[in-house]
Each structure stands twice: as C-alpha cells, then as structure tokens.
Design a protein around this nucleic acid. Structure first.
Length: 434
RNA sequence: UCCCCGGUAGCUCAACUGGCAGAGCAGCCGGCUGUUAACCGGCGGGUUGGAGGUUCGAGUCCUCCCCGGGGAGCCA
C-alpha cells in the first residue's frame, strides 16, 4: 500500500475504494452527534467527508471543533454515494489541521450584501459561485490563445504606459512619467497595427484602462482585452475571424467546463444554440430601425445605449454584428466604406441576452492621405501620431483587427449579470480595495 | 456628472401616523449516528453612518456631509 496518494477533488472518481489525501480548506461542517460531516474544498471542487468514531479520537473531535476556512490535510477512503452532490464522499481516517483561524470567517454561508462582499473580495473568491466563475474565465482565456495559436497568429505585447491616447474621446488615467505626462493604455490597437506589419497575424491579451465614471454592471476601469490585427485582412474576413473566435470560445468552454457551468446553473445547450447558426449581421441603419421598432428611441447618428443593445440582442437571440456605423461616431483610424465615405468599415458584436457589446473592430485606414485627413477631421494633433502615420509610408497594406472584452464574454458565457464577478479583483469607480 | 434606493448587533434584515431597539444567521455552552445554507435548547452581543436642528420625546421628521447599491450617459 504505502502512503495514500495526494489527489484533487476533481480526480476522486478515479480513486474509488482507495485511501487518498486531500489538502484544502474546511468549507462547512454539520453534525448529527456521532456522525459528523466536513465539507472540504481544494480549488477544484468540494467533497464531503464523513467522520465517525471509527476515526481516531482527535480527528473525531476536530470534525466538531474546526472553524470554517481552517486549512487541513484529510485522509479518507473514496466512496461513490448517490446522496453526495458531487457523487463521491470520503470516509475520513484522519484530519490534520494546518492553520486554525482564531476568529470567525467574515463570509458566512448565508446571504451578504454586495458592498460587504466587495470589501472582502480577497476572501469572497473562495466562496460559492466565485470559484467556477474564475475557472470559466481561465477557460475563456485559454480558448482565445488556443484559437490564435492554431491559426498561426503570433502572441505579442503592446505597452501599458503610453504617451498619447488611442481614441481621442475616451478618458485616460494620467500619471507622472519622470516629469512628463503619460497615460495607462486604453487599447493596444495602434501598436498592434505596427506589429502586424512585422509579423503578419498578431494578437495580445492584456489589461486596458478607462477612466470613465461609469457605474453600470458592464463596466470596469481596468479590464482585459483580447485584440487581434491581421495584415491583408479586409472587413468581411475580419467579421468571419471574429465569428469563428467567439464560436470557438463557447464550444471550448462548454467542452472543458461543463461542471462549472452546471454549478452556475448555466445551460450549455442555450450557449451552443446561440453560436450554432451564422451570427446575425445588420447595418447600423437597419439596427436603428429595429431598435425603434422595439420602442427604444434613438435617431440615426446616435450611438447605441444599453437599452438599444438589449433590444437588438432580444430581437436576434444570438450574437449580432452591427456594421457600417456613421464614421463620425467612430474613432479616426477606421477606413471609410468605398461606396459611402460617411460610414466606417467597422462592426460591433453584440452578445445575446443583454450582455452588451463584446467586440469592436474595423478595417483600418491604410493610406497616408486618408489618415492625415481623418486626423484633421477629428481635430487630433499630428505629432504624437507620426510613428502611426509612418506605417502608411512604408509598405502599407489593407489590414483589419478587433478587440474582444474578456470580462463581458465571461459574463455572457457564465450567465453572470454583473461583470465585477468575472475578474478576481475588479477595479470600479470608487473601488480600489482590496 | 446626473437620477433613484439605502446605511439599525460581526452578517442579512425588522421596528405603524415620532413613544421601552428586535429576529434569523454567525460566535460561545449543551444535545443529536446520514446531515445537505442540517436541526433542537440556552447565553452574550448596539454611540441606529457623521454633524447640526425641530420636539416633552427622534432609528423614525428637517438641513448638510460621508459611504454603499441600482440605473443613465460613455464605452469593451
């Protein structure tokens, strides 16, 4: 026999009848006198251990005394049991405490308010929905990397510290850079355009920062974007790439994280059905009519507000691309449609079920003349963009790209209404702790 | 920045038109051989967010401030 093997809760099905060692934390305990139950979590799942006087005296005593979130090693024999939520239980032989808290764990098993939970985010992430949610986030990020890797994209990086804004309109976090003004990047796109002319197909996944005073369930001040940029790719191909990426993410998460989706009561069939068909595609002008038909007022030239996005997502019931926005409500770097210079060759992808815009993308301006004209049109200074203009001076090619909001994508797939739970430590207006 | 709601025990909440501040959970003590947010009995626990005001009397009404939540705008 020898020493019992150390295993994780998610591996228990492979060890029925064997004695194993689980290392984890006491999530909860219950007692019926001579039968005591300890629920232990280890990051991969939860399992109930059954402690009876058959265990040694100290272990039997610990099963009654250990407070919530004690860390411990637990030796027991794995047994399949229909009564166990996960299908398996442990008949406990021995418990060895590693750390016994001196004070009650702040987060109980009963309900708490959001403010309290956010103040204890560092402890909240151990609880309930948070673990499967963060495991789904992990799967989403790996699915993105896997998708691009398989297609020969080069993973690259863009700077976080920048000297100028990418999109003139959005608010930036300023900071002092050795006496000069610098900002936290709000998008890696412009740099990715340069990199794609070096490497062909590139992507990066990283944090971006928006100093908007947004207080909604869809906004963070620090969030993660997966951005891609492809040389020689035009608008149509850009949409196809985005659609294939999103479909791949959903299929990969459903395949790899079925257990977590079940814990979150998210029906994988609903997700698969949403991405099975080709995504809907409408022009901005058509979208405005659909939105108005749903009783949400907006006129041509307005950007879509949250109610408008919700109307669109309700109308289609699957992801929908909104193409060809009026150029004046989109950033300076987007290429104009050859048949209508008033509209940009761009698209936003609106997620189903009201999870909002998850992708913004476009074909980029590719001639120096157009770029200079558009910088001027937007009232932007030329100097900080000289390097960007250079890209159109030497070997410019048609190129396109997009940015996918990781947290909104996770929220949609996990079926979690508020984006704050899709990242371990959300940064929100008025919330910088912990 | 604007609009709405809230702040009472460690947590979640109650307390009528102003009249003795209460319950569940958590904690502590005890009971229970299959519990599933276990259950049963007992005990302790409060500057009612802060400052000022009205009143015989304020958790409750008024003013200002602070904090939190929801939403809008903007965006991914």
């Amino acid at each position: 026999m020898g020493e019992p093997r150390q295993v994780y809760v998610e591996e228990l099905s492979q060890h029925v009848g064997q004695e194993v060692l689980i290392q984890g934390w006491l999530f909860n305990k219950r007692s019926s006198g001579k039968v005591r139950f300890v629920i232990v979590r280890d990051g991969t799942g939860w399992v109930q251990g059954v402690v009876t006087p058959a265990a040694d005296e100290e272990t039997f005593e610990l099963a009654e005394r250990l407070p919530q979130e004690s860390s411990l090693r637990l030796w027991g024999v794995v047994r399949a049991d229909a009564r166990a939520p996960g299908g398996f239980e442990l008949d406990v032989r021995r418990i060895q405490p590693i750390h016994i808290p001196k004070e009650p764990f702040p987060i109980g098993l009963k309900e708490h308010g959001v403010g309290f939970l956010m103040d204890h985010r560092h402890l909240w992430i151990r609880m309930g929905k948070q673990v499967p949610l963060l495991r789904i986030r992990d799967a989403v990020l790996w699915a993105i990397r896997d998708f691009f890797k398989r297609r020969g994209f080069v993973a690259t990086e863009t700077p976080i510290l920048v000297g100028t804004s990418v999109e003139g309109t959005t608010t930036l976090f300023p900071l002092d850079y050795f006496g000069r003004q610098a900002f936290l990047s709000q998008s890696g796109q412009l740099y990715l355009e340069a990199t794609c002319l070096a490497l062909g197909k590139v992507y990066w996944i990283g944090p971006v920062f928006r100093a908007e005073k947004s207080k909604t369930r869809r906004h963070l001040t620090e969030f993660w974007m997966a951005e891609a940029e492809v040389a020689f790719l035009e608008h149509e191909g850009n949409l196809t790439l985005q659609e294939e990426l999103v479909r791949h993410i959903v299929e990969a998460v459903v395949a790899e994280r079925a257990r977590e989706l079940a814990q979150l009561k998210r029906d994988p069939e609903v997700l698969l059905a949403q991405v099975r068909e080709p995504f809907a595609r409408v022009t901005y002008a058509e979208a405005v009519e659909i939105v108005n038909a749903h009783g949400v007022e907006m006129s041509y030239g307005d950007d879509f507000g949250a109610p408008a996005e919700d109307a669109l997502s309700a109308h289609f019931g699957r992801p929908v691309f909104v193409e060809r926005f009026p150029a004046k409500i989109k950033p300076f770097y987007m290429k104009r449609a050859p048949d209508d210079p008033q509209v940009a060759l761009c698209a936003d992808l609106i997620a189903p079920e009201g999870y909002g815009e998850i992708i913004g993308g476009s074909q980029r301006v590719d001639t120096e003349e157009e770029l200079l004209a558009q910088l001027e049109e937007y009232g932007l200074p030329r100097e900080p963009y000289e390097w960007y203009i250079d890209l159109r001076r030497w070997g410019s090619v048609p190129h396109s790209g997009f940015g996918l909001g990781v947290e909104r994508t996770v929220a949609w797939i996990a079926g979690t209404r508020h984006i704050r739970e899709t990242i371990p430590f959300p940064r929100l207006l008025d919330r910088l702790y912990p």
